[in-house]
Design a protein around this nucleic acid. Sequence first.
DNA 1: ACTTGGTAGACTGTCTACCAAGTGCCATGA
DNA 2: TCATGGCACTTGGTAGACAGTCTACCAAGT
Lengths: 253, 253
Amino acid sequence: MTTISAGPGAGAEPAGARHVKRPQPLRESVYEALTEMIIDGTLERGRHLVEVELAGLLGVSRQPVREALQRLNNEGWVDLRPGFGAMVHVPADDEVDQLLAARAALESESARLAARHASKDDVAKLRDLCKVGTTYQEAGDIDGTVRTNGELHSLITQMSGNRFLVDFAAQVDRRVRWYYTPVAPVRGAASWREHNRLVKAISEGDEDKAAQIMREHTEHTRKAYHDLQAATEPGTAAPDADATPRRRRRTTT
Amino acid sequence: MTTISAGPGAGAEPAGARHVKRPQPLRESVYEALTEMIIDGTLERGRHLVEVELAGLLGVSRQPVREALQRLNNEGWVDLRPGFGAMVHVPADDEVDQLLAARAALESESARLAARHASKDDVAKLRDLCKVGTTYQEAGDIDGTVRTNGELHSLITQMSGNRFLVDFAAQVDRRVRWYYTPVAPVRGAASWREHNRLVKAISEGDEDKAAQIMREHTEHTRKAYHDLQAATEPGTAAPDADATPRRRRRTTT
DNA sequence: ACTTGGTAGACTGTCTACCAAGTGCCATGA
DNA sequence: TCATGGCACTTGGTAGACAGTCTACCAAGT
């Protein structure tokens, strides 16, 4: 059922101030539902999204859908063409590159600040995530690996204590998560070894080292993506970044 | 007159493909009108914004205003309190710090990439902006100085060729421009000397140097802000970041 | 074969009206 | 003085309407 459940709001509250459950605005739920559907491929790239259609699908009126679509547009998930409608964004060839370059800058700085401010508690959590992620990776659970990877990176940016870095990195990470899934199995073990080194640097408060490792980590990911790209379709040099659906990989077997 | 003119859309088209002027969606015009009013102080910090009020003021209906307000909320210009309305965001004490830290990361990376990709044309434009900015600064034209400062930084990020860096940096820069105005006269000459060194490094293609200068540049700005803060109100140590309006500086004399 | 003109359908952008629920404020009362 | 109750206000969401625009398609003319 794709109908929106009156969702119990995301639970990322500060420990002490426990507010009673406040129902999320509908547009928020719609936004989340749509990103989820985009990420998991229910809404394929390039697909024309019609407001009333989505409204019917989710059991709400046009307004919340519009508002969600506009936010998705601002964040680059869909492209809004005036007078026509929204299309699920089709990533250009160089987009992953640029995304990872931006991530490198954001997360490298975050890692530096995280190393500066790291508390014992944080470090413990990081170690835990490393362990969990490695386990998933060894078990071949791709979804789990990618998710844990996201959580680890997210925690590090949060440790930076800089709300702007957190915000931007969160946006970038979700996008990366969208493109990244096929890369995960290739990077696999190496990625989590790097995570371990990174956590070590942070726990030792070594800012420069943490920043450096994070930068290399992202760089390796980019390389892996390119290699995979080259291997999957050799002989595509011309950058025609238009409505060529190419192949669509599904991770949900 | 605050009524929205049927604005002629931003003109950042590629040179060859000259599209006929297409009227912007209303929400876009509303968004721009509101940010402008926030930046120039027409809408003071902490002010309660009511949808119908703004709608009347701008001569449109609630709908475009709502959509604009939500975007402003997402970008941190206003705080949306459900059931009550929007308040113009009141920056917390540490916010400028965080903003400048984020900017340091983003623009330092941009400067690096700009140095890598710089064309002759770009460098010429940079030199021009430096000259203009210095002139403004010497003439004591604060508005002009701040604006040119923004244009210079904006051009550098655009030269990076990374749309995400451009996007994030643009957001940060507008916010900085909002907070920054009081700092401009203090920083003055030194700031533009640094700009000159930066442009030189970029023109020579020295990536590391460009990145380094940009980082220091931002760092100096932050220091200047702190000094000004300390000078203006000595003896404020406790970080109570709530509805204390403190003093409000107006730049529009 | 190619261009032009016309037609039709679909969808967005915007407006209006309306209702329910939540929030802040103020006066009342203990 | 402090809690309570109530009122006015504002948003969040729904529904319906209408103009403008975009796409596609077909037919006629060159």
